[in-house]
Design a protein around this nucleic acid. Sequence first.
DNA 1: TATTGCCACATTGTTCAACAATCTATAGGG
DNA 2: CCCTATAGATTGTTGAACAATGTGGCAATA
Lengths: 239, 239
Amino acid sequence: MVRMTGWNGSNESTAERIANVLRQQITEGDVPPGTQLSEERLVARLGVSRNTLREAFRLLTHDGLLVHHHNRGVFVPVLDEADLVDLYRLRRIVECGVLRSLTGLDPNLLLPLRVEVEAAESAASRGEWDEVVTANMRFHQGLVRLTESRRIQDTTRRVLAELRLVFHVVSNPEVLHERYVRRNRALLDLLEAGKIAQAADELEQYLRDAEEELLDAYRTMRRVGSAEYARTSVAGEMR
Amino acid sequence: MVRMTGWNGSNESTAERIANVLRQQITEGDVPPGTQLSEERLVARLGVSRNTLREAFRLLTHDGLLVHHHNRGVFVPVLDEADLVDLYRLRRIVECGVLRSLTGLDPNLLLPLRVEVEAAESAASRGEWDEVVTANMRFHQGLVRLTESRRIQDTTRRVLAELRLVFHVVSNPEVLHERYVRRNRALLDLLEAGKIAQAADELEQYLRDAEEELLDAYRTMRRVGSAEYARTSVAGEMR
DNA sequence: TATTGCCACATTGTTCAACAATCTATAGGG
DNA sequence: CCCTATAGATTGTTGAACAATGTGGCAATA
Protein backbone atom coordinates (compact mmCIF):
# COMPACT_ATOMS: atom_id res chain seq x y z
CA MET A 1 0.00 0.00 0.00
CA VAL A 2 1.37 3.33 -1.05
CA ARG A 3 1.06 5.73 1.84
CA MET A 4 1.17 9.46 1.33
CA THR A 5 3.19 11.38 3.79
CA GLY A 6 3.29 15.11 4.25
CA TRP A 7 1.55 17.11 1.52
CA ASN A 8 -1.90 15.73 0.96
CA GLY A 9 -3.09 17.68 -2.03
CA SER A 10 -5.24 20.31 -0.31
CA ASN A 11 -5.09 23.12 2.19
CA GLU A 12 -6.63 21.19 5.04
CA SER A 13 -4.51 19.10 7.32
CA THR A 14 -4.70 15.33 7.24
CA ALA A 15 -6.36 15.37 10.64
CA GLU A 16 -9.09 17.67 9.35
CA ARG A 17 -9.63 15.49 6.33
CA ILE A 18 -9.97 12.39 8.49
CA ALA A 19 -12.20 14.27 10.91
CA ASN A 20 -14.51 15.20 8.04
CA VAL A 21 -14.72 11.58 6.90
CA LEU A 22 -15.66 10.47 10.39
CA ARG A 23 -17.96 13.44 10.88
CA GLN A 24 -19.99 12.48 7.88
CA GLN A 25 -20.23 8.85 8.96
CA ILE A 26 -21.38 9.89 12.42
CA THR A 27 -23.88 12.53 11.34
CA GLU A 28 -25.27 10.28 8.62
CA GLY A 29 -25.88 7.60 11.21
CA ASP A 30 -23.46 5.04 9.77
CA VAL A 31 -21.79 4.91 13.19
CA PRO A 32 -24.64 4.74 15.69
CA PRO A 33 -24.49 6.35 19.14
CA GLY A 34 -22.74 4.16 21.68
CA THR A 35 -20.17 2.88 19.21
CA GLN A 36 -16.55 2.82 20.28
CA LEU A 37 -14.06 4.00 17.70
CA SER A 38 -11.05 1.70 17.90
CA GLU A 39 -7.78 3.44 17.16
CA GLU A 40 -6.10 0.33 15.84
CA ARG A 41 -8.83 -0.54 13.35
CA LEU A 42 -9.38 3.00 12.13
CA VAL A 43 -5.66 3.50 11.64
CA ALA A 44 -5.65 0.45 9.40
CA ARG A 45 -8.81 1.47 7.55
CA LEU A 46 -8.07 5.15 7.03
CA GLY A 47 -4.37 4.85 6.34
CA VAL A 48 -3.14 7.49 8.77
CA SER A 49 -0.97 7.31 11.83
CA ARG A 50 -2.37 6.95 15.32
CA ASN A 51 -1.35 10.46 16.28
CA THR A 52 -3.13 11.99 13.33
CA LEU A 53 -6.23 9.92 14.02
CA ARG A 54 -6.21 11.03 17.63
CA GLU A 55 -5.99 14.63 16.49
CA ALA A 56 -9.05 14.03 14.33
CA PHE A 57 -10.77 12.57 17.39
CA ARG A 58 -10.05 15.78 19.26
CA LEU A 59 -11.59 17.90 16.52
CA LEU A 60 -14.78 15.86 16.64
CA THR A 61 -14.83 15.83 20.44
CA HIS A 62 -14.76 19.61 20.15
CA ASP A 63 -18.07 19.47 18.27
CA GLY A 64 -19.65 17.02 20.69
CA LEU A 65 -19.69 14.29 18.06
CA LEU A 66 -17.35 12.12 20.15
CA VAL A 67 -16.81 11.72 23.86
CA HIS A 68 -13.49 10.78 25.38
CA HIS A 69 -13.21 8.44 28.36
CA HIS A 70 -9.75 8.51 29.86
CA ASN A 71 -7.86 5.28 29.21
CA ARG A 72 -10.91 3.81 27.52
CA GLY A 73 -11.07 5.60 24.22
CA VAL A 74 -13.60 7.61 22.25
CA PHE A 75 -17.27 6.82 21.68
CA VAL A 76 -20.15 8.26 19.74
CA PRO A 77 -22.18 9.79 22.57
CA VAL A 78 -25.60 8.45 23.45
CA LEU A 79 -27.68 11.54 24.16
CA ASP A 80 -30.47 11.10 26.68
CA GLU A 81 -33.49 13.20 27.59
CA ALA A 82 -31.39 15.50 29.76
CA ASP A 83 -29.12 16.24 26.81
CA LEU A 84 -32.12 16.86 24.62
CA VAL A 85 -33.55 19.37 27.08
CA ASP A 86 -30.13 20.97 27.42
CA LEU A 87 -29.68 21.32 23.68
CA TYR A 88 -33.10 22.89 23.17
CA ARG A 89 -32.63 25.25 26.07
CA LEU A 90 -29.46 26.54 24.42
CA ARG A 91 -31.14 26.62 21.02
CA ARG A 92 -34.03 28.71 22.30
CA ILE A 93 -31.74 31.16 24.01
CA VAL A 94 -29.36 31.55 21.10
CA GLU A 95 -31.65 31.38 18.08
CA CYS A 96 -34.47 33.43 19.57
CA GLY A 97 -31.95 35.78 21.14
CA VAL A 98 -30.39 36.32 17.75
CA LEU A 99 -33.72 37.27 16.20
CA ARG A 100 -34.68 39.57 19.06
CA SER A 101 -31.31 41.31 18.96
CA LEU A 102 -31.66 42.21 15.30
CA THR A 103 -32.06 45.89 14.54
CA GLY A 104 -32.23 45.60 10.78
CA LEU A 105 -32.48 42.84 8.23
CA ASP A 106 -30.10 42.32 5.34
CA PRO A 107 -32.22 40.92 2.46
CA ASN A 108 -29.13 39.23 1.06
CA LEU A 109 -28.97 37.05 4.14
CA LEU A 110 -32.61 36.03 3.73
CA LEU A 111 -32.02 34.60 0.27
CA PRO A 112 -30.17 31.46 1.43
CA LEU A 113 -32.98 30.86 3.90
CA ARG A 114 -35.50 30.61 1.10
CA VAL A 115 -33.17 28.27 -0.76
CA GLU A 116 -33.12 25.94 2.24
CA VAL A 117 -36.87 26.10 2.75
CA GLU A 118 -37.44 25.08 -0.82
CA ALA A 119 -34.76 22.40 -0.66
CA ALA A 120 -36.48 20.96 2.40
CA GLU A 121 -39.91 21.04 0.73
CA SER A 122 -38.53 19.41 -2.36
CA ALA A 123 -36.76 16.70 -0.41
CA ALA A 124 -39.85 16.09 1.70
CA SER A 125 -41.97 15.60 -1.41
CA ARG A 126 -39.46 13.04 -2.62
CA GLY A 127 -39.37 11.32 0.76
CA GLU A 128 -35.65 11.92 1.26
CA TRP A 129 -35.86 12.53 4.98
CA ASP A 130 -32.14 12.72 5.61
CA GLU A 131 -31.97 15.59 3.15
CA VAL A 132 -34.95 17.22 4.87
CA VAL A 133 -33.05 17.14 8.14
CA THR A 134 -29.93 18.54 6.53
CA ALA A 135 -31.80 21.37 4.84
CA ASN A 136 -33.57 22.13 8.09
CA MET A 137 -30.24 22.41 9.87
CA ARG A 138 -28.86 24.66 7.18
CA PHE A 139 -31.98 26.80 7.55
CA HIS A 140 -31.40 27.31 11.23
CA GLN A 141 -27.71 27.86 10.64
CA GLY A 142 -28.75 30.56 8.19
CA LEU A 143 -31.04 32.08 10.80
CA VAL A 144 -28.20 32.77 13.21
CA ARG A 145 -26.05 33.95 10.34
CA LEU A 146 -28.28 37.03 10.35
CA THR A 147 -26.07 38.33 13.15
CA GLU A 148 -22.81 37.92 11.22
CA SER A 149 -21.28 36.83 14.51
CA ARG A 150 -18.66 34.13 14.14
CA ARG A 151 -18.92 32.85 17.70
CA ILE A 152 -22.70 32.60 17.65
CA GLN A 153 -22.50 30.69 14.40
CA ASP A 154 -19.91 28.32 15.84
CA THR A 155 -22.04 27.70 18.90
CA THR A 156 -25.04 26.95 16.72
CA ARG A 157 -23.03 24.66 14.49
CA ARG A 158 -22.01 22.55 17.48
CA VAL A 159 -25.52 22.43 18.89
CA LEU A 160 -27.03 21.35 15.59
CA ALA A 161 -24.34 18.72 15.10
CA GLU A 162 -25.17 17.22 18.47
CA LEU A 163 -28.85 17.39 17.69
CA ARG A 164 -28.30 15.11 14.73
CA LEU A 165 -27.21 12.45 17.20
CA VAL A 166 -30.57 12.82 18.92
CA PHE A 167 -32.33 12.26 15.63
CA HIS A 168 -30.47 8.99 15.25
CA VAL A 169 -31.56 7.77 18.65
CA VAL A 170 -35.24 8.32 17.98
CA SER A 171 -36.63 6.61 14.94
CA ASN A 172 -39.25 7.63 12.39
CA PRO A 173 -37.79 11.01 11.51
CA GLU A 174 -40.41 11.66 8.85
CA VAL A 175 -43.32 12.23 11.22
CA LEU A 176 -41.20 14.59 13.28
CA HIS A 177 -39.68 16.69 10.58
CA GLU A 178 -42.56 16.91 8.16
CA ARG A 179 -44.50 19.66 9.85
CA TYR A 180 -41.42 21.73 10.63
CA VAL A 181 -40.81 22.26 6.97
CA ARG A 182 -44.04 24.23 6.90
CA ARG A 183 -43.12 26.17 10.01
CA ASN A 184 -39.78 27.09 8.50
CA ARG A 185 -41.63 28.68 5.61
CA ALA A 186 -43.96 30.51 7.98
CA LEU A 187 -40.95 31.77 9.89
CA LEU A 188 -39.29 32.98 6.74
CA ASP A 189 -42.46 34.74 5.62
CA LEU A 190 -42.57 36.65 8.89
CA LEU A 191 -38.94 37.67 8.48
CA GLU A 192 -39.41 38.80 4.90
CA ALA A 193 -42.35 40.89 6.09
CA GLY A 194 -40.04 42.48 8.65
CA LYS A 195 -42.02 41.15 11.60
CA ILE A 196 -38.95 40.22 13.59
CA ALA A 197 -40.44 40.12 17.09
CA GLN A 198 -43.30 37.99 15.86
CA ALA A 199 -40.84 35.65 14.14
CA ALA A 200 -38.91 35.28 17.37
CA ASP A 201 -42.06 34.33 19.25
CA GLU A 202 -43.01 31.82 16.57
CA LEU A 203 -39.51 30.34 16.70
CA GLU A 204 -39.69 30.05 20.47
CA GLN A 205 -42.92 28.07 20.27
CA TYR A 206 -41.57 26.09 17.32
CA LEU A 207 -38.60 24.95 19.38
CA ARG A 208 -40.72 24.15 22.42
CA ASP A 209 -43.01 21.99 20.31
CA ALA A 210 -40.07 20.21 18.70
CA GLU A 211 -38.50 19.50 22.07
CA GLU A 212 -41.76 18.15 23.42
CA GLU A 213 -42.30 15.84 20.46
CA LEU A 214 -38.76 14.53 20.68
CA LEU A 215 -39.23 13.89 24.39
CA ASP A 216 -42.36 11.94 23.57
CA ALA A 217 -40.41 9.94 21.02
CA TYR A 218 -37.80 9.19 23.67
CA ARG A 219 -40.42 8.03 26.13
CA THR A 220 -42.22 5.75 23.71
CA MET A 221 -38.91 4.39 22.48
CA ARG A 222 -37.85 3.54 26.00
CA ARG A 223 -41.20 1.90 26.70
CA VAL A 224 -41.73 -0.23 23.63
CA GLY A 225 -38.23 -0.66 22.25
CA SER A 226 -35.79 -0.83 25.10
CA ALA A 227 -34.87 -4.45 24.45
CA GLU A 228 -34.42 -3.90 20.75
CA TYR A 229 -32.50 -0.72 21.43
CA ALA A 230 -30.09 -2.50 23.74
CA ARG A 231 -29.55 -5.20 21.17
CA THR A 232 -28.81 -2.96 18.22
CA SER A 233 -27.21 0.20 19.50
CA VAL A 234 -25.20 -0.45 22.63
CA ALA A 235 -21.59 -1.45 22.99
CA GLY A 236 -20.90 -1.54 19.30
CA GLU A 237 -17.41 -1.17 17.92
CA MET A 238 -16.45 0.59 14.73
CA ARG A 239 -14.43 -1.59 12.42
CA MET B 1 16.69 15.08 33.64
CA VAL B 2 14.38 12.41 34.89
CA ARG B 3 11.38 12.24 32.61
CA MET B 4 8.18 10.65 33.77
CA THR B 5 6.46 8.46 31.28
CA GLY B 6 2.97 7.07 31.48
CA TRP B 7 1.28 7.45 34.84
CA ASN B 8 1.59 11.00 36.04
CA GLY B 9 0.23 10.80 39.55
CA SER B 10 -3.26 12.17 38.99
CA ASN B 11 -6.46 11.47 37.13
CA GLU B 12 -5.94 14.11 34.49
CA SER B 13 -3.97 13.34 31.40
CA THR B 14 -0.57 14.87 30.84
CA ALA B 15 -1.99 16.97 28.05
CA GLU B 16 -4.63 18.41 30.39
CA ARG B 17 -2.01 19.19 32.99
CA ILE B 18 0.15 20.99 30.44
CA ALA B 19 -2.90 22.77 29.06
CA ASN B 20 -3.71 24.08 32.52
CA VAL B 21 -0.18 25.37 32.99
CA LEU B 22 -0.35 27.23 29.70
CA ARG B 23 -3.92 28.37 30.35
CA GLN B 24 -2.88 30.06 33.55
CA GLN B 25 0.08 31.77 31.91
CA ILE B 26 -2.11 33.03 29.10
CA THR B 27 -5.02 34.21 31.22
CA GLU B 28 -2.69 35.83 33.76
CA GLY B 29 -1.11 37.78 30.96
CA ASP B 30 2.36 36.24 31.26
CA VAL B 31 2.12 35.34 27.59
CA PRO B 32 0.75 38.43 25.88
CA PRO B 33 -1.56 38.31 22.84
CA GLY B 34 0.34 37.91 19.59
CA THR B 35 2.95 35.61 21.07
CA GLN B 36 3.83 32.51 19.13
CA LEU B 37 4.19 29.34 21.17
CA SER B 38 7.15 27.45 19.79
CA GLU B 39 6.78 23.70 19.99
CA GLU B 40 10.49 23.06 20.26
CA ARG B 41 11.07 25.45 23.15
CA LEU B 42 7.98 24.45 25.10
CA VAL B 43 8.81 20.79 24.73
CA ALA B 44 12.18 21.51 26.28
CA ARG B 45 10.74 23.71 29.02
CA LEU B 46 7.74 21.61 30.00
CA GLY B 47 9.35 18.20 29.68
CA VAL B 48 6.68 16.56 27.54
CA SER B 49 6.71 15.19 24.04
CA ARG B 50 5.69 17.20 21.02
CA ASN B 51 2.56 15.12 20.53
CA THR B 52 1.38 15.72 24.05
CA LEU B 53 2.12 19.41 23.78
CA ARG B 54 0.17 19.58 20.55
CA GLU B 55 -2.75 17.89 22.30
CA ALA B 56 -2.60 20.59 24.96
CA PHE B 57 -2.60 23.16 22.17
CA ARG B 58 -5.81 21.65 20.85
CA LEU B 59 -7.48 21.89 24.21
CA LEU B 60 -6.61 25.57 24.51
CA THR B 61 -7.59 26.27 20.91
CA HIS B 62 -10.95 24.83 21.86
CA ASP B 63 -11.35 27.58 24.44
CA GLY B 64 -10.23 30.32 22.10
CA LEU B 65 -7.05 30.88 24.09
CA LEU B 66 -4.88 29.87 21.14
CA VAL B 67 -5.31 30.14 17.41
CA HIS B 68 -3.80 27.69 14.98
CA HIS B 69 -2.36 28.77 11.64
CA HIS B 70 -1.73 25.83 9.38
CA ASN B 71 1.98 25.16 8.91
CA ARG B 72 2.81 28.21 11.00
CA GLY B 73 2.01 27.16 14.53
CA VAL B 74 -0.14 28.41 17.40
CA PHE B 75 -0.42 31.96 18.70
CA VAL B 76 -2.12 33.75 21.54
CA PRO B 77 -4.84 35.56 19.61
CA VAL B 78 -4.90 39.32 19.39
CA LEU B 79 -8.55 40.24 19.77
CA ASP B 80 -9.64 43.38 17.98
CA GLU B 81 -12.73 45.57 18.22
CA ALA B 82 -14.74 43.18 16.04
CA ASP B 83 -13.96 40.32 18.42
CA LEU B 84 -14.91 42.47 21.36
CA VAL B 85 -18.28 43.31 19.79
CA ASP B 86 -18.76 39.65 18.91
CA LEU B 87 -18.00 38.45 22.42
CA TYR B 88 -20.37 40.92 24.03
CA ARG B 89 -23.11 40.15 21.55
CA LEU B 90 -22.88 36.51 22.56
CA ARG B 91 -22.64 37.42 26.24
CA ARG B 92 -25.78 39.53 26.09
CA ILE B 93 -27.73 36.85 24.31
CA VAL B 94 -26.62 34.03 26.58
CA GLU B 95 -26.43 35.67 29.99
CA CYS B 96 -29.57 37.76 29.62
CA GLY B 97 -31.31 34.88 27.91
CA VAL B 98 -30.47 32.67 30.85
CA LEU B 99 -32.01 35.10 33.31
CA ARG B 100 -35.13 35.64 31.22
CA SER B 101 -35.62 31.92 30.79
CA LEU B 102 -35.66 31.28 34.52
CA THR B 103 -38.98 30.20 35.96
CA GLY B 104 -37.83 29.80 39.55
CA LEU B 105 -34.72 30.60 41.56
CA ASP B 106 -32.78 28.10 43.65
CA PRO B 107 -31.47 30.06 46.68
CA ASN B 108 -28.61 27.61 46.96
CA LEU B 109 -27.32 28.77 43.59
CA LEU B 110 -27.46 32.38 44.71
CA LEU B 111 -25.07 31.79 47.60
CA PRO B 112 -21.90 31.43 45.51
CA LEU B 113 -22.84 34.66 43.73
CA ARG B 114 -22.70 36.56 46.99
CA VAL B 115 -19.36 34.96 47.77
CA GLU B 116 -17.94 36.27 44.50
CA VAL B 117 -19.41 39.73 44.96
CA GLU B 118 -17.77 40.02 48.33
CA ALA B 119 -14.52 38.55 47.04
CA ALA B 120 -14.48 41.18 44.31
CA GLU B 121 -15.23 43.99 46.75
CA SER B 122 -12.52 42.81 49.09
CA ALA B 123 -9.96 42.49 46.31
CA ALA B 124 -10.89 45.91 44.97
CA SER B 125 -10.34 47.49 48.37
CA ARG B 126 -6.90 45.91 48.44
CA GLY B 127 -6.14 47.05 44.91
CA GLU B 128 -5.64 43.51 43.61
CA TRP B 129 -7.20 44.09 40.23
CA ASP B 130 -6.37 40.73 38.74
CA GLU B 131 -8.33 39.13 41.53
CA VAL B 132 -11.19 41.53 40.92
CA VAL B 133 -11.34 40.39 37.32
CA THR B 134 -11.24 36.75 38.34
CA ALA B 135 -14.00 37.15 40.91
CA ASN B 136 -16.07 39.07 38.38
CA MET B 137 -15.70 36.21 35.90
CA ARG B 138 -16.68 33.68 38.52
CA PHE B 139 -19.71 35.82 39.32
CA HIS B 140 -20.92 35.74 35.74
CA GLN B 141 -20.10 32.06 35.49
CA GLY B 142 -22.29 31.61 38.55
CA LEU B 143 -25.06 33.59 36.89
CA VAL B 144 -25.40 31.18 34.00
CA ARG B 145 -25.08 28.28 36.42
CA LEU B 146 -28.62 29.20 37.50
CA THR B 147 -29.80 27.16 34.50
CA GLU B 148 -27.92 24.02 35.47
CA SER B 149 -27.25 23.55 31.76
CA ARG B 150 -23.87 22.08 30.99
CA ARG B 151 -23.68 23.39 27.45
CA ILE B 152 -24.64 26.92 28.38
CA GLN B 153 -22.01 26.88 31.10
CA ASP B 154 -19.38 25.62 28.67
CA THR B 155 -20.26 28.32 26.19
CA THR B 156 -19.97 30.97 28.88
CA ARG B 157 -16.68 29.57 30.09
CA ARG B 158 -15.18 29.91 26.63
CA VAL B 159 -16.51 33.42 26.14
CA LEU B 160 -15.19 34.62 29.48
CA ALA B 161 -11.80 33.03 28.84
CA GLU B 162 -11.52 34.91 25.57
CA LEU B 163 -12.64 38.09 27.25
CA ARG B 164 -9.65 37.91 29.52
CA LEU B 165 -7.49 38.29 26.45
CA VAL B 166 -9.30 41.52 25.70
CA PHE B 167 -8.52 42.79 29.18
CA HIS B 168 -4.84 42.19 28.51
CA VAL B 169 -4.90 44.20 25.32
CA VAL B 170 -6.40 47.25 26.97
CA SER B 171 -4.48 48.63 29.90
CA ASN B 172 -5.60 50.21 33.16
CA PRO B 173 -8.05 47.52 34.20
CA GLU B 174 -8.80 49.22 37.50
CA VAL B 175 -10.82 52.09 36.09
CA LEU B 176 -12.82 49.66 33.97
CA HIS B 177 -13.63 47.05 36.56
CA GLU B 178 -14.13 49.20 39.60
CA ARG B 179 -17.68 50.27 38.95
CA TYR B 180 -18.81 46.84 37.81
CA VAL B 181 -18.18 45.45 41.24
CA ARG B 182 -21.00 47.68 42.46
CA ARG B 183 -23.24 46.70 39.58
CA ASN B 184 -22.64 43.05 40.37
CA ARG B 185 -23.99 43.65 43.85
CA ALA B 186 -26.99 45.54 42.50
CA LEU B 187 -27.67 42.64 40.14
CA LEU B 188 -27.47 40.16 42.95
CA ASP B 189 -29.81 42.24 45.11
CA LEU B 190 -32.40 42.20 42.35
CA LEU B 191 -32.10 38.45 42.01
CA GLU B 192 -32.38 37.85 45.74
CA ALA B 193 -35.52 40.00 45.69
CA GLY B 194 -36.89 37.73 42.97
CA LYS B 195 -37.03 40.53 40.40
CA ILE B 196 -35.71 38.39 37.59
CA ALA B 197 -36.95 40.39 34.61
CA GLN B 198 -35.60 43.57 36.13
CA ALA B 199 -32.27 41.88 36.74
CA ALA B 200 -32.12 40.78 33.12
CA ASP B 201 -32.71 44.34 31.94
CA GLU B 202 -30.04 45.65 34.29
CA LEU B 203 -27.61 43.01 33.05
CA GLU B 204 -28.34 43.94 29.46
CA GLN B 205 -27.50 47.58 30.10
CA TYR B 206 -24.52 46.54 32.22
CA LEU B 207 -23.04 44.58 29.35
CA ARG B 208 -23.74 47.33 26.83
CA ASP B 209 -21.96 49.85 29.03
CA ALA B 210 -18.99 47.53 29.54
CA GLU B 211 -18.70 46.93 25.81
CA GLU B 212 -18.82 50.63 25.09
CA GLU B 213 -16.14 51.44 27.64
CA LEU B 214 -13.88 48.73 26.34
CA LEU B 215 -14.36 50.02 22.81
CA ASP B 216 -13.35 53.45 24.03
CA ALA B 217 -10.28 51.93 25.63
CA TYR B 218 -9.42 50.28 22.32
CA ARG B 219 -9.79 53.53 20.42
CA THR B 220 -7.66 55.58 22.79
CA MET B 221 -5.08 52.82 22.91
CA ARG B 222 -4.82 52.77 19.14
CA ARG B 223 -4.54 56.55 19.04
CA VAL B 224 -1.98 57.26 21.72
CA GLY B 225 -0.17 53.99 22.11
CA SER B 226 0.05 52.28 18.76
CA ALA B 227 3.83 52.61 18.57
CA GLU B 228 4.34 51.35 22.09
CA TYR B 229 1.84 48.58 21.47
CA ALA B 230 3.67 47.40 18.38
CA ARG B 231 6.93 47.42 20.24
CA THR B 232 5.82 45.42 23.26
CA SER B 233 3.10 43.05 22.15
CA VAL B 234 3.54 42.03 18.55
CA ALA B 235 5.48 39.14 17.10
CA GLY B 236 6.72 37.88 20.42
CA GLU B 237 7.83 34.34 20.91
CA MET B 238 7.33 32.24 24.00
CA ARG B 239 10.55 30.79 25.34
C1' DT C 1 -24.46 -20.61 43.07
C1' DA C 2 -22.61 -16.25 43.86
C1' DT C 3 -18.67 -13.55 45.04
C1' DT C 4 -14.04 -12.26 45.43
C1' DG C 5 -9.29 -11.84 44.01
C1' DC C 6 -5.80 -12.57 40.61
C1' DC C 7 -3.73 -12.57 36.19
C1' DA C 8 -3.18 -12.31 31.19
C1' DC C 9 -4.70 -9.71 27.31
C1' DA C 10 -6.21 -5.85 24.63
C1' DT C 11 -6.39 -0.91 24.32
C1' DT C 12 -5.11 3.65 25.25
C1' DG C 13 -1.45 7.20 26.85
C1' DT C 14 3.01 9.01 26.00
C1' DT C 15 7.51 9.35 24.19
C1' DC C 16 11.05 9.54 20.69
C1' DA C 17 13.34 10.05 16.30
C1' DA C 18 13.07 10.71 11.58
C1' DC C 19 11.60 12.81 7.38
C1' DA C 20 8.33 15.65 4.36
C1' DA C 21 6.11 19.96 3.51
C1' DT C 22 5.70 24.61 4.31
C1' DC C 23 6.87 29.29 5.69
C1' DT C 24 10.27 33.11 6.35
C1' DA C 25 14.06 35.70 5.71
C1' DT C 26 17.95 36.74 3.20
C1' DA C 27 20.83 37.45 -0.75
C1' DG C 28 21.37 38.19 -5.45
C1' DG C 29 19.97 39.74 -10.19
C1' DG C 30 17.23 42.64 -13.04
C1' DC D 1 13.56 49.35 -5.76
C1' DC D 2 11.31 45.00 -6.81
C1' DC D 3 11.26 40.32 -7.90
C1' DT D 4 12.99 35.60 -7.53
C1' DA D 5 15.57 31.77 -5.79
C1' DT D 6 17.69 29.48 -2.27
C1' DA D 7 18.74 28.04 2.70
C1' DG D 8 17.30 27.56 7.26
C1' DA D 9 13.89 27.06 10.71
C1' DT D 10 9.36 25.33 12.07
C1' DT D 11 5.45 22.62 11.72
C1' DG D 12 2.99 18.20 9.87
C1' DT D 13 3.00 13.31 9.84
C1' DT D 14 4.66 8.85 10.46
C1' DG D 15 6.02 4.44 12.79
C1' DA D 16 7.64 1.99 16.56
C1' DA D 17 8.24 1.25 21.29
C1' DC D 18 6.98 0.95 26.08
C1' DA D 19 4.07 2.31 30.25
C1' DA D 20 -0.36 2.44 32.41
C1' DT D 21 -4.97 1.31 32.55
C1' DG D 22 -9.36 -1.21 31.73
C1' DT D 23 -11.59 -5.77 30.76
C1' DG D 24 -12.75 -10.30 31.03
C1' DG D 25 -11.85 -14.99 32.28
C1' DC D 26 -10.47 -18.33 35.74
C1' DA D 27 -9.80 -20.27 40.02
C1' DA D 28 -10.49 -20.26 44.95
C1' DT D 29 -13.64 -19.45 48.52
C1' DA D 30 -17.82 -18.96 51.20
